[in-house]
Write a protein that binds this DNA or RNA. Structure first.
Length: 432
RNA sequence: GUGAUCGUAGCUCAGUUGGUUAGAGCGCCAGGUUGUGGUCCUGGAGGCCGAGGGUUCAAAUCCCUCCGGUCACCCCA
Protein backbone atom coordinates (compact mmCIF):
# COMPACT_ATOMS: atom_id res chain seq x y z
CA UNK A 1 0.00 0.00 0.00
CA UNK A 2 1.29 3.44 -0.83
CA UNK A 3 1.15 6.29 1.60
CA UNK A 4 -1.64 7.84 -0.41
CA UNK A 5 -5.24 6.89 -0.75
CA UNK A 6 -8.22 8.31 -2.55
CA UNK A 7 -9.77 11.47 -1.11
CA UNK A 8 -12.74 10.97 1.17
CA UNK A 9 -15.97 10.75 -0.77
CA UNK A 10 -14.29 9.80 -4.04
CA UNK A 11 -13.73 6.37 -5.51
CA UNK A 12 -11.70 4.66 -8.21
CA UNK A 13 -13.34 2.86 -11.10
CA UNK A 14 -11.26 -0.25 -11.78
CA UNK A 15 -11.15 -2.88 -14.55
CA UNK A 16 -13.03 -5.19 -12.15
CA UNK A 17 -16.01 -4.35 -9.96
CA UNK A 18 -15.43 -4.22 -6.22
CA UNK A 19 -17.34 -3.32 -3.11
CA UNK A 20 -16.99 -0.48 -0.70
CA UNK A 21 -19.19 -0.85 2.34
CA UNK A 22 -22.20 -2.64 0.94
CA UNK A 23 -22.01 -0.77 -2.31
CA UNK A 24 -20.77 -2.33 -5.48
CA UNK A 25 -18.52 -0.07 -7.50
CA UNK A 26 -19.09 -1.08 -11.09
CA UNK A 27 -16.19 -2.00 -13.34
CA UNK A 28 -14.99 0.49 -15.91
CA UNK A 29 -16.48 -1.51 -18.78
CA UNK A 30 -19.81 -1.49 -16.95
CA UNK A 31 -19.69 2.27 -16.65
CA UNK A 32 -18.92 2.45 -20.35
CA UNK A 33 -21.88 0.22 -21.14
CA UNK A 34 -24.24 2.37 -19.10
CA UNK A 35 -22.89 5.47 -20.80
CA UNK A 36 -23.37 3.85 -24.18
CA UNK A 37 -26.99 3.05 -23.43
CA UNK A 38 -27.51 6.61 -22.19
CA UNK A 39 -26.10 8.04 -25.39
CA UNK A 40 -28.32 5.77 -27.39
CA UNK A 41 -31.47 6.82 -25.50
CA UNK A 42 -30.55 10.50 -25.70
CA UNK A 43 -29.84 10.33 -29.40
CA UNK A 44 -33.11 8.50 -30.00
CA UNK A 45 -34.87 11.39 -28.28
CA UNK A 46 -33.10 13.80 -30.59
CA UNK A 47 -30.86 15.30 -27.96
CA UNK A 48 -27.32 16.51 -28.64
CA UNK A 49 -24.45 16.25 -26.21
CA UNK A 50 -22.90 19.27 -24.57
CA UNK A 51 -19.72 19.19 -22.49
CA UNK A 52 -18.77 22.03 -20.21
CA UNK A 53 -15.76 22.51 -17.93
CA UNK A 54 -15.71 21.07 -14.44
CA UNK A 55 -14.34 24.41 -13.28
CA UNK A 56 -16.68 27.38 -13.31
CA UNK A 57 -16.74 30.86 -11.79
CA UNK A 58 -18.03 30.61 -8.25
CA UNK A 59 -20.37 33.48 -8.96
CA UNK A 60 -22.15 31.49 -11.68
CA UNK A 61 -23.09 28.78 -9.21
CA UNK A 62 -23.94 31.22 -6.45
CA UNK A 63 -26.27 33.18 -8.72
CA UNK A 64 -27.61 30.20 -10.63
CA UNK A 65 -28.23 27.70 -7.85
CA UNK A 66 -29.07 30.27 -5.20
CA UNK A 67 -27.08 31.91 -2.41
CA UNK A 68 -29.03 30.40 0.46
CA UNK A 69 -29.23 26.83 -0.82
CA UNK A 70 -27.26 24.16 1.01
CA UNK A 71 -25.15 23.62 -2.06
CA UNK A 72 -23.87 27.16 -2.17
CA UNK A 73 -23.82 27.90 1.53
CA UNK A 74 -21.85 24.88 2.67
CA UNK A 75 -21.16 22.29 -0.02
CA UNK A 76 -19.00 23.96 -2.63
CA UNK A 77 -15.43 23.04 -3.39
CA UNK A 78 -14.39 26.59 -4.11
CA UNK A 79 -11.07 28.36 -4.11
CA UNK A 80 -9.48 31.59 -5.07
CA UNK A 81 -6.45 31.95 -7.28
CA UNK A 82 -4.93 35.21 -8.44
CA UNK A 83 -8.08 37.14 -7.79
CA UNK A 84 -10.42 34.74 -9.58
CA UNK A 85 -12.94 32.61 -7.69
CA UNK A 86 -13.29 29.09 -9.00
CA UNK A 87 -15.68 26.33 -8.06
CA UNK A 88 -15.81 22.66 -8.98
CA UNK A 89 -19.29 22.47 -10.44
CA UNK A 90 -21.86 21.04 -8.00
CA UNK A 91 -24.40 20.53 -10.79
CA UNK A 92 -24.54 21.05 -14.52
CA UNK A 93 -27.69 23.01 -15.30
CA UNK A 94 -26.19 26.40 -14.51
CA UNK A 95 -23.03 25.66 -16.54
CA UNK A 96 -25.09 24.49 -19.52
CA UNK A 97 -27.21 27.61 -19.34
CA UNK A 98 -24.06 29.69 -19.12
CA UNK A 99 -22.67 27.99 -22.22
CA UNK A 100 -25.98 28.39 -24.03
CA UNK A 101 -26.00 32.12 -23.40
CA UNK A 102 -22.28 32.60 -24.00
CA UNK A 103 -22.37 30.90 -27.39
CA UNK A 104 -25.80 32.20 -28.41
CA UNK A 105 -27.06 28.72 -29.08
CA UNK A 106 -30.53 30.10 -29.71
CA UNK A 107 -29.04 31.26 -33.03
CA UNK A 108 -28.89 27.63 -34.11
CA UNK A 109 -32.64 28.03 -34.45
CA UNK A 110 -35.55 26.19 -32.93
CA UNK A 111 -35.50 24.56 -29.54
CA UNK A 112 -32.14 23.41 -28.21
CA UNK A 113 -32.32 19.89 -26.82
CA UNK A 114 -29.13 19.08 -24.95
CA UNK A 115 -27.85 16.29 -22.73
CA UNK A 116 -24.77 16.01 -20.59
CA UNK A 117 -22.92 13.49 -18.49
CA UNK A 118 -20.00 14.07 -16.20
CA UNK A 119 -18.60 14.49 -12.71
CA UNK A 120 -19.87 16.98 -10.13
CA UNK A 121 -18.53 17.88 -6.71
CA UNK A 122 -20.15 18.63 -3.39
CA UNK A 123 -18.44 18.80 -0.01
CA UNK A 124 -21.05 16.76 1.83
CA UNK A 125 -20.60 13.99 4.34
CA UNK A 126 -20.38 10.91 2.14
CA UNK A 127 -22.66 7.93 2.58
CA UNK A 128 -24.30 5.24 0.52
CA UNK A 129 -25.26 6.63 -2.88
CA UNK A 130 -23.71 9.99 -2.09
CA UNK A 131 -20.18 11.04 -2.86
CA UNK A 132 -18.11 14.19 -2.95
CA UNK A 133 -17.23 13.47 -6.55
CA UNK A 134 -20.27 11.97 -8.20
CA UNK A 135 -21.59 11.73 -11.72
CA UNK A 136 -24.68 13.27 -13.16
CA UNK A 137 -26.35 12.91 -16.49
CA UNK A 138 -29.24 15.02 -17.55
CA UNK A 139 -31.23 16.81 -20.17
CA UNK A 140 -31.91 20.48 -20.80
CA UNK A 141 -34.58 21.55 -23.27
CA UNK A 142 -34.11 25.26 -23.81
CA UNK A 143 -36.35 27.67 -25.66
CA UNK A 144 -39.82 26.23 -25.27
CA UNK A 145 -42.61 27.24 -22.90
CA UNK A 146 -44.87 24.58 -24.36
CA UNK A 147 -45.96 21.97 -21.78
CA UNK A 148 -44.85 19.35 -24.25
CA UNK A 149 -41.30 20.34 -23.41
CA UNK A 150 -41.97 19.50 -19.75
CA UNK A 151 -43.64 16.23 -20.64
CA UNK A 152 -40.94 15.26 -23.11
CA UNK A 153 -38.27 15.92 -20.50
CA UNK A 154 -40.03 13.55 -18.14
CA UNK A 155 -40.63 11.00 -20.89
CA UNK A 156 -36.95 11.01 -21.75
CA UNK A 157 -36.01 10.51 -18.13
CA UNK A 158 -38.38 7.57 -17.85
CA UNK A 159 -37.07 6.13 -21.11
CA UNK A 160 -33.54 5.96 -19.69
CA UNK A 161 -34.59 3.70 -16.83
CA UNK A 162 -36.85 1.71 -19.09
CA UNK A 163 -33.90 1.08 -21.39
CA UNK A 164 -32.23 -0.77 -18.52
CA UNK A 165 -35.35 -2.74 -17.73
CA UNK A 166 -35.63 -0.97 -14.43
CA UNK A 167 -39.01 -1.10 -12.76
CA UNK A 168 -40.35 -0.02 -9.41
CA UNK A 169 -39.49 3.66 -9.72
CA UNK A 170 -42.10 6.17 -8.66
CA UNK A 171 -42.64 9.46 -10.47
CA UNK A 172 -43.94 12.31 -8.35
CA UNK A 173 -44.89 15.66 -9.84
CA UNK A 174 -46.05 19.03 -8.66
CA UNK A 175 -46.21 22.61 -9.82
CA UNK A 176 -44.38 25.41 -8.10
CA UNK A 177 -46.08 28.14 -10.13
CA UNK A 178 -44.31 31.40 -10.74
CA UNK A 179 -41.67 32.54 -8.25
CA UNK A 180 -44.11 35.06 -6.79
CA UNK A 181 -46.64 32.28 -6.17
CA UNK A 182 -44.05 30.32 -4.35
CA UNK A 183 -43.03 33.36 -2.31
CA UNK A 184 -46.64 34.03 -1.33
CA UNK A 185 -47.10 30.42 -0.36
CA UNK A 186 -43.94 30.45 1.67
CA UNK A 187 -45.13 33.46 3.63
CA UNK A 188 -48.51 31.84 4.21
CA UNK A 189 -46.83 28.68 5.41
CA UNK A 190 -44.62 30.56 7.83
CA UNK A 191 -47.64 32.48 9.13
CA UNK A 192 -49.50 29.25 9.66
CA UNK A 193 -46.68 27.40 11.39
CA UNK A 194 -45.20 30.14 13.53
CA UNK A 195 -47.86 29.80 16.28
CA UNK A 196 -46.89 26.12 16.54
CA UNK A 197 -43.21 26.82 16.56
CA UNK A 198 -42.65 25.38 20.03
CA UNK A 199 -44.12 22.06 18.95
CA UNK A 200 -41.72 21.69 16.08
CA UNK A 201 -38.55 19.66 16.16
CA UNK A 202 -35.28 21.46 16.38
CA UNK A 203 -34.47 20.98 12.71
CA UNK A 204 -37.95 22.03 11.67
CA UNK A 205 -37.66 25.21 13.71
CA UNK A 206 -34.46 25.97 11.94
CA UNK A 207 -36.05 25.28 8.57
CA UNK A 208 -38.86 27.63 9.40
CA UNK A 209 -36.31 30.41 9.22
CA UNK A 210 -34.00 29.20 6.53
CA UNK A 211 -36.03 27.15 4.09
CA UNK A 212 -39.71 26.84 5.08
CA UNK A 213 -40.67 24.81 2.02
CA UNK A 214 -38.46 21.98 3.18
CA UNK A 215 -40.72 21.57 6.19
CA UNK A 216 -43.16 19.93 3.84
CA UNK A 217 -41.26 16.69 3.70
CA UNK A 218 -40.76 16.30 7.43
CA UNK A 219 -41.03 12.77 8.71
CA UNK A 220 -42.14 13.68 12.22
CA UNK A 221 -45.61 12.31 12.78
CA UNK A 222 -47.32 15.21 14.53
CA UNK A 223 -45.69 17.70 12.19
CA UNK A 224 -47.25 15.83 9.29
CA UNK A 225 -50.60 16.09 11.04
CA UNK A 226 -50.08 19.81 11.46
CA UNK A 227 -49.37 20.14 7.78
CA UNK A 228 -52.65 18.50 6.81
CA UNK A 229 -54.43 21.76 7.54
CA UNK A 230 -51.65 23.98 6.29
CA UNK A 231 -52.08 26.19 3.26
CA UNK A 232 -51.11 24.46 0.04
CA UNK A 233 -48.99 25.57 -2.82
CA UNK A 234 -51.81 24.92 -5.25
CA UNK A 235 -53.96 27.56 -3.50
CA UNK A 236 -51.38 30.17 -4.35
CA UNK A 237 -50.84 29.27 -7.97
CA UNK A 238 -52.70 31.27 -10.59
CA UNK A 239 -54.96 29.99 -13.35
CA UNK A 240 -52.32 30.19 -16.03
CA UNK A 241 -49.87 28.11 -14.04
CA UNK A 242 -52.59 25.59 -13.25
CA UNK A 243 -53.44 25.33 -16.93
CA UNK A 244 -49.79 24.59 -17.72
CA UNK A 245 -49.70 21.96 -14.99
CA UNK A 246 -52.90 20.34 -16.23
CA UNK A 247 -51.53 20.23 -19.74
CA UNK A 248 -48.37 18.47 -18.57
CA UNK A 249 -50.44 15.89 -16.69
CA UNK A 250 -52.64 15.27 -19.74
CA UNK A 251 -49.59 14.79 -21.91
CA UNK A 252 -48.08 12.29 -19.48
CA UNK A 253 -51.34 10.36 -19.47
CA UNK A 254 -51.35 10.33 -23.25
CA UNK A 255 -47.95 8.62 -23.07
CA UNK A 256 -49.15 6.15 -20.42
CA UNK A 257 -46.59 7.46 -17.97
CA UNK A 258 -47.79 6.79 -14.44
CA UNK A 259 -47.30 9.54 -11.88
CA UNK A 260 -48.55 10.63 -8.53
CA UNK A 261 -49.26 14.24 -7.72
CA UNK A 262 -47.48 15.37 -4.62
CA UNK A 263 -48.43 18.88 -3.48
CA UNK A 264 -45.67 18.62 -0.89
CA UNK A 265 -42.95 18.17 -3.51
CA UNK A 266 -40.57 21.11 -3.59
CA UNK A 267 -37.16 21.28 -5.09
CA UNK A 268 -34.04 22.42 -3.37
CA UNK A 269 -32.59 24.73 -5.94
CA UNK A 270 -33.77 28.27 -6.44
CA UNK A 271 -34.18 28.28 -10.16
CA UNK A 272 -37.22 26.06 -10.47
CA UNK A 273 -40.70 27.25 -11.35
CA UNK A 274 -43.86 25.54 -12.58
CA UNK A 275 -43.32 21.84 -13.18
CA UNK A 276 -41.26 19.96 -10.61
CA UNK A 277 -40.74 16.22 -10.50
CA UNK A 278 -38.73 13.54 -8.85
CA UNK A 279 -38.10 9.90 -9.59
CA UNK A 280 -37.63 7.66 -6.58
CA UNK A 281 -36.69 4.07 -6.01
CA UNK A 282 -36.93 2.09 -2.79
CA UNK A 283 -33.81 0.05 -3.28
CA UNK A 284 -31.36 2.89 -2.85
CA UNK A 285 -31.10 3.19 0.91
CA UNK A 286 -31.42 6.63 2.40
CA UNK A 287 -30.85 8.26 -0.97
CA UNK A 288 -34.11 7.39 -2.62
CA UNK A 289 -33.91 9.96 -5.40
CA UNK A 290 -32.88 8.56 -8.73
CA UNK A 291 -33.42 11.79 -10.61
CA UNK A 292 -35.20 15.09 -10.35
CA UNK A 293 -35.92 18.16 -12.36
CA UNK A 294 -38.40 20.66 -13.56
CA UNK A 295 -38.87 23.94 -15.34
CA UNK A 296 -36.42 26.72 -14.67
CA UNK A 297 -37.46 29.74 -16.72
CA UNK A 298 -35.90 32.02 -14.14
CA UNK A 299 -32.34 30.74 -14.41
CA UNK A 300 -31.18 32.66 -17.48
CA UNK A 301 -32.42 36.01 -16.14
CA UNK A 302 -30.67 35.24 -12.87
CA UNK A 303 -27.47 34.83 -14.84
CA UNK A 304 -27.91 38.25 -16.38
CA UNK A 305 -29.70 37.29 -19.57
CA UNK A 306 -31.84 40.08 -20.93
CA UNK A 307 -35.38 38.76 -21.04
CA UNK A 308 -36.94 35.39 -20.35
CA UNK A 309 -35.53 32.09 -21.54
CA UNK A 310 -37.90 29.19 -21.01
CA UNK A 311 -36.19 25.91 -20.16
CA UNK A 312 -36.72 22.64 -18.41
CA UNK A 313 -34.67 19.59 -17.67
CA UNK A 314 -33.74 16.81 -15.33
CA UNK A 315 -30.60 15.70 -13.57
CA UNK A 316 -29.91 12.12 -12.57
CA UNK A 317 -27.24 10.45 -10.50
CA UNK A 318 -25.10 7.79 -12.11
CA UNK A 319 -24.26 6.25 -8.74
CA UNK A 320 -27.97 6.03 -7.95
CA UNK A 321 -28.61 4.38 -11.29
CA UNK A 322 -25.95 1.78 -10.54
CA UNK A 323 -27.52 1.17 -7.14
CA UNK A 324 -30.88 0.56 -8.79
CA UNK A 325 -29.27 -1.73 -11.38
CA UNK A 326 -27.68 -3.73 -8.55
CA UNK A 327 -31.10 -4.13 -6.97
CA UNK A 328 -32.43 -5.83 -10.08
CA UNK A 329 -29.22 -7.81 -10.66
CA UNK A 330 -28.70 -6.12 -13.97
CA UNK A 331 -26.90 -8.26 -16.50
CA UNK A 332 -23.96 -6.30 -17.87
CA UNK A 333 -22.51 -7.44 -21.20
CA UNK A 334 -19.19 -9.21 -20.86
CA UNK A 335 -16.24 -7.09 -21.94
CA UNK A 336 -14.39 -7.86 -25.13
CA UNK A 337 -11.57 -10.34 -24.68
CA UNK A 338 -8.52 -10.82 -26.92
CA UNK A 339 -9.19 -12.84 -30.07
CA UNK A 340 -5.83 -14.52 -29.69
CA UNK A 341 -3.08 -14.93 -27.15
CA UNK A 342 0.45 -15.59 -28.38
CA UNK A 343 2.66 -17.86 -26.31
CA UNK A 344 6.36 -17.77 -27.19
CA UNK A 345 9.18 -20.15 -26.35
CA UNK A 346 12.66 -18.71 -26.55
CA UNK A 347 14.06 -15.38 -27.59
CA UNK A 348 13.66 -15.85 -31.34
CA UNK A 349 10.02 -16.75 -30.86
CA UNK A 350 9.47 -13.80 -28.54
CA UNK A 351 10.85 -11.46 -31.20
CA UNK A 352 8.63 -12.99 -33.86
CA UNK A 353 5.58 -12.83 -31.61
CA UNK A 354 6.26 -9.24 -30.63
CA UNK A 355 6.31 -8.20 -34.28
CA UNK A 356 3.38 -10.39 -35.31
CA UNK A 357 1.13 -9.18 -32.49
CA UNK A 358 1.87 -5.64 -33.54
CA UNK A 359 1.03 -6.37 -37.18
CA UNK A 360 -2.24 -8.09 -36.25
CA UNK A 361 -3.25 -5.16 -34.09
CA UNK A 362 -2.57 -2.87 -37.04
CA UNK A 363 -5.03 -5.03 -38.95
CA UNK A 364 -7.66 -4.56 -36.26
CA UNK A 365 -7.31 -7.86 -34.46
CA UNK A 366 -7.36 -7.82 -30.66
CA UNK A 367 -4.16 -9.72 -29.90
CA UNK A 368 -2.37 -10.37 -26.60
CA UNK A 369 0.95 -11.79 -25.47
CA UNK A 370 3.11 -12.16 -22.40
CA UNK A 371 5.54 -9.46 -21.33
CA UNK A 372 7.27 -11.32 -18.53
CA UNK A 373 9.22 -14.06 -20.33
CA UNK A 374 7.39 -16.76 -18.42
CA UNK A 375 7.15 -20.49 -18.94
CA UNK A 376 4.81 -21.90 -21.56
CA UNK A 377 2.58 -23.23 -18.81
CA UNK A 378 2.34 -19.77 -17.29
CA UNK A 379 1.61 -18.26 -20.68
CA UNK A 380 -1.15 -20.79 -21.28
CA UNK A 381 -2.63 -19.94 -17.88
CA UNK A 382 -2.52 -16.30 -18.87
CA UNK A 383 -4.24 -17.07 -22.18
CA UNK A 384 -6.95 -18.88 -20.29
CA UNK A 385 -7.35 -16.08 -17.76
CA UNK A 386 -7.72 -13.54 -20.52
CA UNK A 387 -10.33 -15.76 -22.11
CA UNK A 388 -8.89 -15.64 -25.61
CA UNK A 389 -10.66 -18.12 -27.91
CA UNK A 390 -7.39 -18.88 -29.75
CA UNK A 391 -3.91 -19.39 -28.41
CA UNK A 392 -1.00 -19.42 -30.84
CA UNK A 393 2.11 -21.30 -29.73
CA UNK A 394 5.40 -20.37 -31.30
CA UNK A 395 8.69 -22.11 -30.59
CA UNK A 396 11.75 -23.14 -32.56
CA UNK A 397 9.86 -25.82 -34.47
CA UNK A 398 7.19 -23.42 -35.64
CA UNK A 399 9.73 -20.83 -36.73
CA UNK A 400 11.54 -23.54 -38.72
CA UNK A 401 8.31 -24.80 -40.33
CA UNK A 402 6.86 -21.37 -41.01
CA UNK A 403 3.63 -22.57 -39.44
CA UNK A 404 2.06 -21.67 -36.08
CA UNK A 405 0.35 -24.06 -33.71
CA UNK A 406 -3.13 -22.61 -33.21
CA UNK A 407 -5.12 -23.98 -30.30
CA UNK A 408 -8.86 -23.50 -30.02
CA UNK A 409 -9.24 -23.13 -26.29
CA UNK A 410 -12.86 -24.18 -25.94
CA UNK A 411 -12.24 -27.58 -27.58
CA UNK A 412 -8.56 -28.03 -26.97
CA UNK A 413 -8.01 -28.83 -30.64
CA UNK A 414 -4.76 -27.69 -32.12
CA UNK A 415 -3.74 -27.31 -35.76
CA UNK A 416 -0.82 -25.96 -37.75
CA UNK A 417 -1.49 -22.77 -39.70
CA UNK A 418 1.09 -21.31 -42.03
CA UNK A 419 2.33 -17.86 -41.18
CA UNK A 420 0.83 -16.46 -44.41
CA UNK A 421 -2.63 -17.74 -43.51
CA UNK A 422 -2.48 -16.80 -39.83
CA UNK A 423 -4.10 -13.36 -39.99
CA UNK A 424 -6.93 -14.69 -42.09
CA UNK A 425 -7.40 -17.70 -39.82
CA UNK A 426 -7.60 -15.48 -36.74
CA UNK A 427 -9.89 -12.94 -38.34
CA UNK A 428 -12.94 -14.95 -37.34
CA UNK A 429 -13.64 -16.51 -33.96
CA UNK A 430 -13.97 -20.29 -33.76
CA UNK A 431 -17.39 -21.68 -34.62
CA UNK A 432 -19.52 -22.25 -31.56
C1' G B 1 -21.36 19.75 11.86
C1' U B 2 -23.92 15.52 14.95
C1' G B 3 -24.77 10.27 16.04
C1' A B 4 -24.04 4.92 15.48
C1' U B 5 -20.78 1.30 14.02
C1' C B 6 -16.40 -1.11 12.13
C1' G B 7 -10.69 -1.46 11.32
C1' U B 8 -6.76 -9.06 11.23
C1' A B 9 -3.24 -11.34 4.08
C1' G B 10 -4.91 -8.52 -2.56
C1' C B 11 -10.51 -9.95 -1.36
C1' U B 12 -14.26 -12.26 2.14
C1' C B 13 -13.69 -13.45 7.01
C1' A B 14 -12.20 -17.00 11.62
C1' G B 15 -9.22 -16.21 15.94
C1' U B 16 -11.98 -19.56 22.74
C1' U B 17 -12.01 -17.19 29.80
C1' G B 18 -5.71 -12.62 27.53
C1' G B 19 -1.31 -17.99 26.80
C1' U B 20 4.03 -20.70 22.04
C1' U B 21 5.87 -19.10 15.67
C1' A B 22 -1.74 -15.24 13.96
C1' G B 23 -5.28 -18.99 10.51
C1' A B 24 -9.04 -20.52 6.46
C1' G B 25 -11.42 -19.93 1.67
C1' C B 26 -10.79 -17.32 -2.83
C1' G B 27 -7.00 -14.87 -5.65
C1' C B 28 -1.65 -14.64 -6.91
C1' C B 29 3.21 -17.41 -7.94
C1' A B 30 5.51 -22.16 -8.87
C1' G B 31 5.84 -27.53 -9.43
C1' G B 32 3.29 -32.23 -10.77
C1' U B 33 4.32 -32.66 -18.03
C1' U B 34 11.66 -31.74 -23.08
C1' G B 35 6.74 -27.20 -25.53
C1' U B 36 0.33 -26.79 -23.57
C1' G B 37 -4.73 -23.54 -20.14
C1' G B 38 -9.40 -24.60 -17.59
C1' U B 39 -10.44 -29.65 -13.32
C1' C B 40 -7.27 -32.10 -9.70
C1' C B 41 -2.87 -32.66 -6.35
C1' U B 42 1.49 -30.42 -3.88
C1' G B 43 4.25 -26.36 -2.34
C1' G B 44 5.28 -20.98 -1.90
C1' A B 45 4.95 -15.74 -1.40
C1' G B 46 2.01 -12.32 1.06
C1' G B 47 0.28 -9.51 7.92
C1' C B 48 3.85 -3.44 12.31
C1' C B 49 -3.60 -7.67 13.78
C1' G B 50 -5.28 0.89 11.61
C1' A B 51 -1.56 4.13 14.83
C1' G B 52 0.26 5.60 19.66
C1' G B 53 0.17 4.90 24.80
C1' G B 54 -1.36 1.99 29.19
C1' U B 55 -2.60 -2.61 32.34
C1' U B 56 -0.15 -7.58 32.66
C1' C B 57 4.80 -12.53 33.52
C1' A B 58 2.11 -12.42 28.75
C1' A B 59 -2.31 -8.28 24.40
C1' A B 60 -5.08 -9.28 17.73
C1' U B 61 -7.91 -10.01 22.47
C1' C B 62 -8.71 -5.54 28.27
C1' C B 63 -8.43 0.26 29.02
C1' C B 64 -7.41 5.37 26.98
C1' U B 65 -6.30 8.67 22.92
C1' C B 66 -5.88 9.49 17.87
C1' C B 67 -6.52 8.23 12.66
C1' G B 68 -9.35 6.00 8.83
C1' G B 69 -13.73 3.59 6.72
C1' U B 70 -18.88 2.74 6.52
C1' C B 71 -23.99 3.85 7.70
C1' A B 72 -27.43 7.50 9.27
C1' C B 73 -29.23 12.72 10.48
C1' C B 74 -29.19 17.32 7.46
C1' C B 75 -29.66 17.98 2.22
C1' C B 76 -29.69 16.23 -2.37
C1' A B 77 -28.34 13.19 -7.88
Amino acid sequence: MSTFQHIKGTFDILPDAYTIGNTRIAASHEWRHVETVLHEVMTRHNLEEIRTPMLEPTELVARGVGEHTDIVSKEMFAFERRGTNYVLRPEITAPVTRAFLEHHLEQRGGVQKLFYIGPCFRAEQPQKGRYRQFHQFGVEIIGATDPRADAETIATMIAVYRAFGLTGARLRINTLGEPEHRAAFRDALVDYLTPYKDELSETSQRRLDTNPLRLLDTKVEHERALLNDAPTLLDHVDAEALAHYDAVKQLLKSLDIAFEEDPMLVRGLDYYSHTAFELEHDALGAQSALAGGGRYDGLAPALGHDGPLPACGFAAGMERLFLALDAIDYDYPVPETPRVFFAALGEDAEAWVFKTVHDLRQQGIHAAHDLKGRSLKAQMREANRQDAPYTVIIGGNELADGAAQVKTMATGEQTAVSFQDLANYLSTPPAA
